[in-house]
């Protein structure tokens, strides 16, 4: 609708030059107008997208200290309060599992008598080592990096996912 009408001129006609120059000018302005609109949209759109990513997130630190190794019984599964992490002690050593179902993020529950994790949301089940064996969960529970601090306490790093055979010997 806003496209400039470009007349096709007879090549033999006189004084076409002035008219066509004017048309070229209008054409340039027309496309420049679209360019400006597009540019502004890109800048504002980019700003909005960037604005949605906060620079600082006020969340609990991903690295936290848990108890001393001797606090955990052999073969026990311990939920660290408020951290959504299980610390498991086996003969092979310690490992930490993220208490977040790989299906849709609910927190599974540990059943000591059956030795399984069950997710209440959609019934996914995991063995003690975090491997999924039933229900809709597509992957095993994530195993987190665990290490020993200088003063002899366990340190879990939720930001660092490790392989499913990773354990910490003590």
């Amino acid at each position: 609708m806003f496209k400039p009408i470009i007349k096709i001129h007879d090549a033999t006609a006189v004084s076409t030059e002035r008219v066509s120059r004017r048309h070229i000018l209008w054409g340039v302005l027309y496309w420049a107008g679209w360019g400006i609109i597009l540019g502004i949209l890109c800048v504002v759109g980019g700003a909005v997208v960037r604005l949605l990513y906060p620079r600082v997130i006020y969340e609990a630190s991903k690295v936290f200290k848990a108890g001393r190794p001797e606090d955990y019984k052999m073969g026990s599964v311990n939920l660290v309060p408020g951290r959504s992490v299980w610390i498991v002690r086996e003969k092979e050593g310690f490992y930490a599992l993220l208490a977040k179902c790989t299906h849709l993020g609910c927190q599974p529950i540990w059943y000591e008598d059956q030795q399984v994790f069950k997710c209440p949301c959609h019934g996914s089940r995991f063995y003690k080592d975090g491997i999924n064996f039933s229900g809709p969960a597509p992957r095993p529970l994530e195993r987190l990096h665990i290490s020993l601090s200088n003063e002899g306490r366990l340190v879990v790093n939720k930001g660092k996912v490790v392989g499913h055979d990773y354990t910490l010997q003590t």
Partner: peptide, 9 residues
């Protein structure tokens, strides 16, 4: 309660 998923959600 972020650390307790209810039985039926």
């Amino acid at each position: 309660n972020p650390s307790l998923t209810p039985k039926e959600s």
